[in-house]
Design a protein around this nucleic acid. Structure first.
Length: 426
DNA sequence: TCTGGGGTCCTAGGACCC
DNA sequence: TCTGGGGTCCTAGGACCC
């Protein structure tokens, strides 16, 4: 057996224009057309088909700014449908797991896969195989980058996106400097806006230049994260594959309002609703929270009405996942920060200091707690069966004038029988 | 008129202790 | 009159990611 058999090989599998691809699955008519998917509240463009990219529509751009181009070119527009994307994502990840269970699900449309078991010569072909199986089984096109470190597999993936074949491996290439030279510094994973600016001031414009910079200089003038990035570009692994699904540490539910909210009562309803959603989320993951933060703010883009942003955190004496307690604490927090006379644009609830609910029994646990737990369980299962907010608290309100906009919703729900695509049998 | 949502990690600096 | 130094822990805010 040769040594190369054991070199570390990490593949990064990234779904192409993921949300757009999901919408296309159930709507063949838009396959070759320019398509975009909007963020919550139909605010920004967060996924674009290649045809839409070719029109110059930018990632993250506000929808209203691109509206002219969109109408002129008959671009298909969709509001985001996260239950659909989540479902398709799970299918993709399940497919990937068949190649190796050592997988890190990095985001809804990305996963790192350990391919160290394959030889240097095999690995490129394995990449092609993964790509074609995922496409065949889920209908989702992917790009795959393979290299010795996660950061380099990101680089490989970046290049693969522009290639017809969709697969790029840097394994077995002796000197990758000529490749890294073509990768702009801000396209390197872990190098954001701020560090890009700093690097450019110091004459570093591409990945090769960063790779060849002395580690002591980077550590001294930036931080350990930057030095890890540079080491990884050299091919020295510093970022491990996180294959165990560790529990989350915080849980956020926040929304922009469909229309500005000035009324305290309406704000209370929104906060109560977000608190309920957050409580349900942590219960489903067997977690309890010890700290509840509520924030509200006006639009940062419209200063003519005056800007106000504030938050308040309440620490609980005993960790909980009880909706009633969480809503109560949130409303107290809101009361402390609400100011009359502002047009609020966004509000949210953050549960933090989360821990396992299994170990959360304490001196003060009682029979009453048991009853409340059972009540929460039956609320959750009812809402799971009949749709969220079938059972709610009165404080969450019923009118919800402030609800997010969702004008271009495709209404596809792969978990709902009645929204399955219809086929006419003649 | 209209500008998303949900995470993680690191670090500087304050609080506190001896 | 003269008011240390070193260690730990915690938190808010910043930077990054998708």
């Amino acid at each position: 057996m040769s040594y190369t058999q054991y070199t570390r090989k990490i593949a990064l599998i990234d779904c192409n224009s993921f949300y757009v691809s999901c919408e296309r699955l159930f709507n063949p008519k838009i396959r070759k057309k320019p398509v975009v998917v909007l963020s919550n509240n139909d605010g920004c463009i967060i996924s674009r088909s290649n045809e839409a990219k070719a029109l110059g529509i930018k990632m993250g751009e506000p929808y209203f700014k691109e509206k002219d181009v969109i109408i002129k070119n008959n671009v298909q527009v969709f509001s985001s449908n996260y239950s659909l994307y989540g479902d398709i994502s799970r299918r993709v990840m399940r497919t990937l797991k068949r190649f190796n269970s050592d997988i890190e699900i990095y985001s809804i449309d990305e996963a790192f896969l350990d391919l160290s078991n394959f030889s240097d010569n095999e690995v490129q072909n394995i990449g092609h195989e993964i790509r074609s199986i995922v496409l065949k089984w889920t209908g989702i096109p992917t790009s795959i980058g393979i290299a010795k470190t996660k950061t380099l597999s990101k680089v490989a993936n970046h290049i693969a996106k522009k290639k017809q074949s969709g697969v790029v491996s840097l394994i077995g290439i002796k000197n990758i400097d000529s490749i890294l030279e073509k990768v702009k510094i801000n396209d390197v994973w872990g190098v954001g806006k701020q560090i890009t600016k700093f690097y450019q001031q110091n004459g570093i414009y591409n990945a090769k230049q960063l790779k060849n910079k002395s580690n002591t200089w980077i550590k001294k003038s930036s931080n350990v994260l930057s030095s890890r990035t540079a080491m990884e570009l050299k091919g020295i692994p510093c970022i491990n594959l996180e294959t165990t699904n560790s529990k989350r540490k915080s849980c956020v539910v926040s929304r922009s309002f469909g229309q500005r909210v000035e009324n305290f009562q309406e704000l209370k309803e929104a906060i109560a609703g977000y608190s309920l959603n957050a409580s349900e989320k942590i219960r489903s993951e067997y977690l309890v929270t010890k700290s509840i933060t509520v924030f509200i703010r006006t639009s940062p883009f419209q200063n003519n009405y005056g800007f106000y942003s504030n938050s308040k955190t309440i620490d609980l004496p005993i960790a909980t996942n009880n909706s009633i307690e969480i809503v109560k604490a949130s409303l107290n927090a809101l009361e402390a920060i609400f100011k009359n006379g502002y047009r609020y644009q966004k509000a949210g609830v953050i549960l933090s200091h989360l821990s396992d609910s299994i170990n959360s029994k304490n001196l003060f646990s009682s029979e009453r707690d048991e009853k409340i737990n059972n009540l929460m369980k039956s609320i959750d299962s009812t809402n799971y069966k009949y749709g969220r907010s079938t059972l709610s608290l009165a404080s969450a309100g019923v009118h919800k004038r402030w609800k997010s906009r969702r004008q271009h919703y495709s209404k596809i729900d792969t978990a709902d029988f009645y929204s399955l695509p219809k086929i006419k049998v003649i």
